[in-house]
């Protein structure tokens, strides 16, 4: 039996060797199980995979918000594009995405051979994997589902859809979000009910195009851009009607089309207002301060913010 061998390396067993062996025997220490180390190693890889998946989920939400923001009618809601970008910036998701990349790096470095990989290589590969995952998830509308789903779990969280609802339900700022309640006799005045306060607004449709009026009369949820002529009696002057484009079935082409229609509509109003001013100059020598109803839309903030 080998236990009897007291010498090795051609010298007597050292004091240290004796002390170590005595301690091992006294404390009845056994080498930790191989399975334990295998489990630890796998758990680190699972943690790494989780960070990549979470990073991909965060990116899916960022892509969803970014995609909507790309075609948002921001001239109708914000003075400057930078204000709009800062307001919609998905800080939480960007922070989560960056945190997951950092955690992915830490996890890889904690694996047995993780130290062999360069920092740049690990971060780059983690970003690439998260981006690929994020794009795939975004393709399946997962970003939208997460953004909307979280509001049900965390009431304090404001989804991008809620943000858009909030900024489009501000009649005092010239924005209404609601559905047709009742059409008037000749469609010049219709009644629209907003969804937040359930207010009923009388909407003047004089300057609306035929397609805008059709959309309004369809009874679908719509965004109405215009100006409030009477806050006490809830009278709203409509300059454009746009569909409410949220949900898992909205496609990019539709959003792009609506943005182009919005720009076209604003251009038409601007042109009309300039035409009216030109006529006023010719007839009266000066432009009138009392804008008649055919020039109201040319004076709304959104038209003035447009850069054609």
């Amino acid at each position: 039996m080998h236990k009897d061998i007291q010498t090795t390396e051609n010298k007597p067993s050292s004091t240290l060797a004796q002390r170590v062996m005595k301690r091992i025997r006294t404390e009845q220490v056994q080498p930790a199980s191989k399975w334990w180390f295998i489990c630890v190693e796998y758990s680190i890889w699972v943690a790494w995979l989780s960070t990549v998946v979470l990073g991909a989920l965060a990116l899916a939400v960022i892509l969803y918000v970014g995609n909507y923001a790309r075609f948002a009618l921001y001239e109708a809601t914000h003075d400057r594009v930078v204000d709009f970008v800062l307001e919609i910036l998905p800080t939480l998701w960007l922070t989560l995405f960056v945190s997951m990349i950092v955690l992915a790096y830490i996890n890889v470095r904690r694996t047995k051979r993780g130290y062999l990989y360069s920092m740049g290589g690990i971060i780059f590969s983690s970003i690439v994997l998260s981006v690929v995952g994020g794009v795939v998830l975004h393709f399946f509308k997962v970003g939208y589902l997460i953004d909307v789903g979280i509001t049900k779990i965390v009431p304090m969280y404001e989804s991008y859809e809620e943000f858009e609802e909030k900024i489009w339900q501000q009649p005092e700022e010239g924005r209404l979000l609601g559905r047709l309640q009742d059409a008037g006799e000749d469609d010049t005045f219709v009644y629209v009910r907003t969804e937040n306060k359930q207010d009923l607004w009388q909407v003047n449709t004089t300057e609306l195009s035929g397609s805008d009026l059709d959309l309004l009369l369809s009874g679908k949820r719509v965004r109405i851009l215009g100006t409030t002529t009477n806050m006490v009696e809830n009278i709203f002057y409509a300059c454009g009607v746009f569909p409410w484009l949220f949900g898992s079935d909205v496609d990019v082409q539709e959003m792009k089309k609506q943005r182009q229609l919005f720009i076209g509509r604003m251009y038409t109003h601007k042109e009309a207002a300039e035409r009216v001013k030109g006529i006023e100059r010719e007839v009266y020598g000066v432009t009138g301060t009392d804008t008649d109803s055919s020039g109201v839309c040319g004076e709304i903030a959104a038209v003035k913010r447009m850069h054609f």
Partner: peptide, 18 residues
């Protein structure tokens, strides 16, 4: 691999690296 079967072999590790 011997130590994993017989702990007394460990003293050889100690003496080799001490």
């Amino acid at each position: 691999s011997m130590v994993l079967r017989d702990q007394s072999f460990f003293q050889h590790i100690v003496m080799r690296y001490e």
